[in-house]
Amino acid sequence: MRHAVLQLAPEKGQVRRNLAHLEAALLELAEDAPEVVVVPEAYPTGYFLQGGVRELALTVDELAEALDGIHRRAWEGPLDLVIGFYEKDEQSGDYYNAAAYFELGGRGLLHRHRKVFLPTYGVFDEERYLSRGHGVRAFDTRFGRAAILICEDFWHSITSTLAALDGAEVIYVPSASPARGFSGPRPANVERWRQLAMSVAAEHGVYVVLASLVGFEAGKGMSGGSLVASPEGRLLGEAPVFEEALLLVDLDLARIPPVRYDNPMLADLKSGLPILWNDLRRIREEL
């Protein structure tokens, strides 16, 4: 189950040009024949839009149509594609930071996740412009069971816990992470992402696929460092920081049961969780 993470740098607001760049990247990948391609958060527009979200957000149908066109032109056979984008909900008129899983050349849209944890602190201001999503669910793909979490969603380990309890074998994480903290050779946020991905993967015996945006957005350097972590929590591949890259990694879902047998944290959680229900209920009431 070959994955390609497309660590791309969008041009701010240039949706058509960015989608053309995605198409060119797919053409470059044809010889590697990935079955699943993962594109970072907010790729079609760039991440920092402020009020421009309402000019540039796409409906999921508009995105599907654009991706179908790219798929027809650039790919032979089915291709699964995970992509982050600013979404306009046509019915409600609400805007979301979303990511969708498409089976292109097949069943089309399989799942859409709307970001639950909207960072609104420091350099971030998402909740000023966007509505929150209201849940985390795993879903079935033609390969197995997966879940999507977007950027800060993943920084709260409870979301990946829910995804794993819901049966996810692979957690896709489109992100956009501006570099900050230069006291070491790699920015502090990149180190944090790596540690998180490895520990979440190891805790639940899942694959974690992080697709992290690159490029500068008005002085803020999106850091990249996309990666794939194995169910034991090892790094199977990591893209460089700050530059565009195509990261190719083969995921083997057949390895998950033996890895989980050796380190049955998820099974223990399932049996131990009922013991904690009372505390969860108590804390919820106190919040």
Binding site: G13, R16, G51
Partner: peptide
């Protein structure tokens, strides 16, 4: 009220 980043350009 009208907030756009300085690198913002609509096609």
């Amino acid at each position: 009220f009208y907030l756009r980043p300085l690198d913002y350009r609509v096609e």
